[in-house]
């Protein structure tokens, strides 16, 4: 199977608590999975997600709080709007919107988060690499 690289972007609150709990319980996550922590899904703009694909990510999974749990008011609304737009751009680019997913977790959703990451990683492995892989290494930006 072609190796793929998966980026998770996690909200600091519920999803990161789940991730932390998974680590403490020594639950395995895919070796090709990398995690980036942000304070809220409202911090995710279109640029951050596009940049992940520009630099060669094969799939991006956004690990979010359940909307009602957001500590910052409009966070989920801003996040969902941006994700919706980027999915349309990914479709235009031929990368495919299925390579970007959102999953929401309660603070005690440790096992659900681990399952979600494995499921997404397997789905991307089935799809193969992102067809818009850069031809050469990208500048860090």
């Amino acid at each position: 199977m072609t190796p793929v690289s998966i980026l998770g972007i996690a909200c600091n609150w519920s999803p990161y608590a789940c991730y932390h709990a998974a680590g403490r319980a020594e639950l395995a996550l895919p070796a090709n999975f990398r995690l980036m922590r942000v304070m809220c899904m409202g911090r995710i703009n279109q640029a951050l997600i596009l940049k992940a694909f520009e630099h060669g990510a094969d799939g991006v999974i956004l690990l979010e709080c359940v909307d009602a749990d957001c500590r910052y008011g409009p966070g989920p609304e801003v996040g969902h709007t941006n994700v919706d737009r980027v999915r349309r751009l990914l479709r235009f680019l031929g990368i495919g919107q299925e390579r970007l997913v959102e999953r929401a977790f309660a603070a005690d959703g440790r096992d659900e988060l681990v399952h979600a990451v494995w499921d997404f990683t397997r789905a991307i492995e089935d799809m193969g690499p992102n067809p818009a892989k850069p031809g050469s290494a990208r500048e860090a930006s």
Binding site: Q46, L48, L50, K51, F53, E54, P134
Partner: peptide, 16 residues
Amino acid sequence: DGAVHSWMRIMTAPGL
């Protein structure tokens, strides 16, 4: 945040 420049650079991918 450079999103516009990002998609422009993505378009240099040979297999696009």
